[in-house]
Design a protein around this nucleic acid. Structure first.
Lengths: 234, 234
DNA sequence: CCAAAAGTGTTGAAATTACACCCATGT
DNA sequence: ACATGGGTGTAATTTCAACACTTTTGG
């Protein structure tokens, strides 16, 4: 912070609780999903909430967000993006508390699913989402908007899909995010034109009899591309 | 914030000072500028700093940012965008303090310039910028990146230029932001194609003998355009 | 043999880029 | 008359959008 002519020091001001809340997106079976938790402390026990925590003395905001995500999912170094602060004076009836939202994209994965179960968490599709505590509904809405924007600037799919995925799966993800349908020929053309996909010999037969080729993403080429900047408008 | 299974309540956690800092951009004579302040309290008295303040008990973060900006410039309802938090444990040697940066674009204007003078503030061009206190240099760097991105999504010029401006001035602004040169024919074509500029009868003779026509921006059409969404890539 | 999803090319329209000269005027 | 910045148009290229049929194979 700045101590300048407007501010003569710290002692005149209040201190606040500081929290992080995480909007965790997942994608499975053609549906974009949100991970929420059943709160197990009073007040509001039993209500659905985003994953969050108060920030501790010895950590910064990003570390706090990573900590809660790790505690829940066992994952480290996942894509986790700070979004914005929520600071309405009366947003939390318990105490004056500012929260900084983060969003994260995680892959469906057996280990993670088990961990999630153990924590009383649940994946909801967006059209079945229950009401969340405090201003968490706003946080989700804002994060969804941010995800849509983000999806244009980087190939989001690589965080949300399994390590190997088919092009129809990738398309279905983008359709879920944008809430539209896309032309499969144009989509395929566009996504392949980036030259960041490695075709494998194997096929996925889970959704068709013919089977669809599996691709994995070429990390080096992807990083190059992101560095150059690009616009993945589909 | 969330009180869920990871967190059993408020009382176990620390409270923090919360600040806002403002990165204030201006544009004059073909140069993009940053407004900084000479700090007049200890410690670090006399050093250059962004405009900032601690957040008060009865206001939210956005209100705090508007308050300090208003105190300095007399302006209300200026474009002010929250950027991100800065929360390194040791970022402020005085006390554990989290700051939320905002950036703002303001027009050069006599009244404002006078107000600025009175507050010991100074406009610096970016290549003459002095070192700033704490992590304010990082804040500026991040804000500049954000400004470049923002400039693609909305006609930034309308916040930074005087009410009437010429197309070469607008071009020069975009060149300053992007750090490139642009083709004047293509720029003019593009900017006029948005149909948000009203041509005036008057000319500005300050930079050429022939004079350049002054335009003002059609607020209704501009708002329409922003609502529809557009990409001002030049 | 048929249902269901995967895969493939072309064409017209639109947007973008590159590019060079005349105009108006103060000195 | 000349130097300076303002203003204009066109052609080539690239990108985007629309659109329909064949392939594979489990049932």
């Amino acid at each position: 912070m700045s101590i300048n002519n407007q501010v003569s020091g710290y002692s005149h001001s209040e201190k606040f609780y500081l929290a992080v809340d995480c909007i965790i997106f997942g994608f499975d079976k053609g549906k974009l999903k949100l991970l929420v938790f059943k709160r197990d402390v009073d007040p509001l026990r039993g209500e659905w909430s985003l994953l969050g925590s108060l920030v501790k003395e010895n950590e910064n905001v990003g570390e706090a967000a990573n900590r809660v995500l790790h505690q829940l999912t066992g994952l480290k170094n996942v894509f986790l993006k700070e979004l914005r602060s929520y600071s309405e004076v009366d947003r939390d009836p318990g105490a004056r508390c500012i929260s900084i939202s983060h969003y994260s994209l995680i892959r469906f994965d057996e280990d993670v699913e088990q961990m999630i179960e153990e924590h009383g968490a649940h994946w909801f599709e967006f059209d079945e989402l229950p009401a969340l505590i405090l201003d968490h509904d706003d946080m989700v809405k804002d994060a969804l908007t941010a995800l849509k924007n983000e999806a244009r600037r980087r190939p989001i799919g690589f965080e949300l899909l399994p390590e190997q995925f088919t092009i129809p799966q990738l398309q279905s993800l983008y359709e879920a995010i944008y809430g539209t349908t896309l032309d499969s020929r144009n989509f395929r053309k566009k996504v392949l034109s980036f030259n960041v996909l490695q075709k494998s010999e194997d096929k996925d037969f889970s959704t068709s009899k013919k089977g669809a080729f599996l691709y994995r993403f070429d990390e080096d080429k992807y990083n190059e591309l992101v560095a150059k900047g690009f616009d993945f408008v589909v």
